[in-house]
Design a protein around this nucleic acid. Structure first.
Lengths: 341, 341
DNA sequence: CTTTCGACTGTTACCGCTAACATAGCGATC
DNA sequence: GATCGCTATGTTAGCGGTAACAGTCGAAAG
C-alpha cells in the first residue's frame, strides 16, 4: 500500500523498466534488444529509444542462465609480458570479432596450479570454448576440460596428446632444424642460453630437439646458462658475457627466446665481436622487436598470429561438441638474419 | 514414469546431482562449496568428496544471478603489446588476489568506440567495479559508468575530471619536468618524436607540458616526427635518422615512449654519435627493457605497478558505492640515465 | 462473410543457484 | 520437565532473462 515510491531512485534497471517505459511486454523488449527480426519496425524504434533513454544495459547473467548460452571463450596463457601471447590474442580476437564470441583472458605465470585455478574459475562461467597454451596440465585440469562438454583447443605445441584439438608447431622439430642450420654453417662449439624451465615445456622441447640434432652430428653443447625473472634483455647480456668469459672457444649462442638473444647480440656488438664470424647467434619466436636491432638476429617465427586465428576458428566452427578434435601443425620458417654466417 | 535413465549420460552437473550423491539438500551442498562455516565437519567432507568424484564445477552464472554478486572487476586498457599495461595488470592482480575478486581484461586499441563497446559488454556482466585507462571517453561511455552504480577508477592520468575515482600521474607535469631538465643540461635544439596521437591523450598531454616549458624558456621545438603502427624499435630508428638528417643542428631528441627512444639510441650508437655530448635523448615510461641497453636511456617511470595496485585497492575497499571518488596523484621520478649530459 | 494464414506480441515455466526464513535436534538452564 | 538457545539442515521464493508455445488481428482467400 504505502510502498515507498522512488525509495530506490537508481535501482538497477531491468527489462521490466524498459517494458513499462515503452508499453510492450518484456518479451518484446528482449526480442528487440537481441536484434531479432520478428518485431514491427515502429515497436522496435519505441523500444530502442526507451532503452537508450533509460540507459538500460541488459543483464547477461540472467540471459545466459535462461538461454544456456554464453558468448565467452576462455583463453588461458602463461604470461602477458613477453610479446608472444599478446600476438596470439590478436589472432584470436580477429576471428572471434565476427562471431559474437568474446575472448576472456586468464594468466597462469607458468604455474600448473595457477592454471588449474584459472581454468576452474573460467569453467564456472560456462564458456562456449577454451583455448589454452600447452599440452601439459594437471590431472584435475585435464579432467575438467574433458568433462566440460565444450570445444577445447590447446595451442602453441603439438608434441604430445591433446585433450581435444590442438594448433601449434613442433618445438622439438624447431630445435632440431635450428641445430642443423647452425651445424651446416660450420659452427662447432655451441652454447645454449635460456630460461630455467621447470614449466616452460616448449623451451624444453626445443632444447631437446636441438641437442638431439647435435648429437646426431657427433656434437654436444659446449656450455649452457639459465636464468629466471628480470629483464630478459639484460639477462641476455649478462648470460652472454658469462658464457663467453667462461668458455672462450664458444662460437655459437643459441637462445631460448628472442629477447635474451637481442640482449646477447647487443652485448656482442658493443664488445666489437665479429658477428657472425667470430660468434653466431640465434633466438626463437620472430618477435617484431628484432626489426629494430642494428643487425638482424637469426630466429624462427612461432606462427603466433596464425595459431591464434586457427584456434579461434576451431572454437567458432565447432558449435557441436562431438567429433574428434583435430590437430593442426604449423611450420615455422627459419630466418637466418645476419647472425649466422 | 519411463523417464529415460541415463538418456543424457553427461548432461551438465548441477547442485542437485551433488546433493543426491551425498544425501543432503542442495542448500547444504551450496554452503559447503562456498566454504561457509556453519556445516558439520562430517557432512562437509561427504559433500566435498561427492563433488570431487563427480567433477562438479559450480555454475557462477546461476550463483551470481541469485546472490546479485559478481566477483569480477573489469579492466579496460588500450593495448597489450607495449609493456606498460601488462605491468598495470600485474599490480591489479597482486591486490585482487587476496580479495576473491577477479580481473577481466578488455582491450580498446586506443579507439573510443571500441572502448564504449567493450565497456557495454563488461557492464552487461554486472562486475563489482571497473578500472579503465584515461579520462577521455565517449559521452555514452561516461553515462554508462555513472549509471552503473559500481566503483569506477580511471587510471594513468589525472589531468582532467574523473567520473568517480582516479589514480595516475600528471602527464602535463611530466612533460614539463623533462623539458626543464633538458634545458638545464644546456640543450637548445630540441626535437620531439612520438606517436601520432588522435587518441593517445597522455602522449599529447606530455607534449603539451613539454612545449609549455620550452616556450617559458624562450624555446620552441626545432623539429617533430610522428609515426603509427609497426615495430616501435624500428620506427624509433627510422624517425631518428629522418630527424637528424633533416635537422642536423638538433641536439636533443625527446621520444614519447621508451621503445622508440631505445630504437633511436641504438641508431645513434650504431652511427657512432657522441651520446649525450653531440645529442641527448630521453623517453618515457621507465620500461624494464631499457636495463638491457648498452647505455641507459633517460626516462621517467610512469608508476605503472603502483597505479595498478592503488586502483585495485580502491575497488576492493569500496564495497559501498557512495562517497565521492578519490583522486590519487602519483609522482614519477626522472631518471637521467646516461643520455642527458 | 467466414476461414486461413502469417506477422506480431504476450504468457508461462523454467535456467541453477542463494537469501531469508523455518525447522529439527539436543544439551544447558532454571 | 518445560524453556531457551544453539547448531545444523531444509524449504520457499525469487534473481532477470529467454524458449516455447499461445494468442490476436488484419488481409487475403474461398
Amino acid at each position: 500500500m504505502s510502498k515507498p515510491i522512488n525509495a530506490n531512485p537508481r535501482r538497477t534497471l531491468t527489462l521490466r523498466d524498459v517494458s513499462e517505459a515503452s508499453g510492450v511486454s518484456e518479451m518484446t523488449v528482449s526480442r528487440v534488444l537481441r536484434g531479432r527480426v520478428d518485431v514491427a519496425e515502429p515497436t522496435r524504434i519505441r523500444v530502442r529509444e526507451a532503452a537508450r533513454a533509460l540507459g538500460y544495459v541488459p543483464n547477461k547473467i540472467a540471459g545466459a542462465l535462461a538461454s544456456q548460452r554464453v558468448n565467452l571463450v576462455g583463453v588461458i596463457i602463461p604470461s602477458l609480458s613477453n610479446m608472444v601471447f599478446p600476438e596470439v590474442l590478436t589472432g584470436v580476437s580477429e576471428i572471434l570479432d565476427n562471431t559474437g564470441l568474446q575472448p576472456v583472458v586468464g594468466v597462469t605465470n607458468y604455474s600448473p596450479e595457477r592454471e588449474e585455478r584459472v581454468l576452474y574459475e573460467m569453467l564456472s562461467w560456462r564458456p562456449s570454448g577454451v583455448i589454452l597454451a600447452g599440452l601439459e596440465h594437471t590431472d584435475a585440469a585435464r579432467a575438467m576440460l574433458a568433462q566440460a562438454g565444450i570445444p577445447v583447443v590447446e595451442i602453441m605445441d603439438i608434441d604430445g596428446a591433446p585433450v581435444d584439438s590442438a594448433v601449434g608447431i613442433s618445438h622439438r622439430r624447431a630445435g632440431r632444424q635450428m641445430a642443423e642450420a647452425i651445424i651446416a654453417a660450420g659452427y662447432r662449439n655451441i652454447a645454449f642460453l635460456g630460461t630455467m624451465m621447470p614449466d616452460d615445456h616448449r623451451a624444453r622441447k626445443r632444447l631437446e630437439g636441438f641437442e638431439e640434432a647435435l648429437s646426431k652430428a657427433g656434437l654436444a653443447l659446449v656450455d649452457r646458462e639459465f636464468y629466471s625473472g628480470g629483464s630478459a634483455l639484460l639477462k641476455g647480456r649478462e648470460m652472454t658475457e658469462a658464457v663467453l668469459t667462461r668458455s672462450p672457444k664458444v662460437d655459437f649462442l643459441y637462445y631460448s627466446n628472442d629477447m635474451i638473444g637481442a640482449g646477447g647480440l647487443l652485448y656482442c656488438l658493443h664488445k666489437g665481436l665479429d658477428v657472425p664470424g667470430r660468434v653466431g647467434l640465434a633466438g626463437f619466436n620472430g618477435v617484431e622487436l628484432l626489426d629494430g636491432l642494428p643487425i638482424k638476429l637469426a630466429t624462427m617465427d612461432a606462427c603466433r598470429l596464425e595459431i591464434g586465428r586457427r584456434a579461434a576458428e576451431i572454437i567458432a566452427g565447432k558449435r557441436a561438441v562431438e567429433g574428434q578434435g583435430e590437430v593442426i601443425e604449423l611450420f615455422p620458417t627459419l630466418q637466418t638474419g645476419d647472425t649466422i654466417r
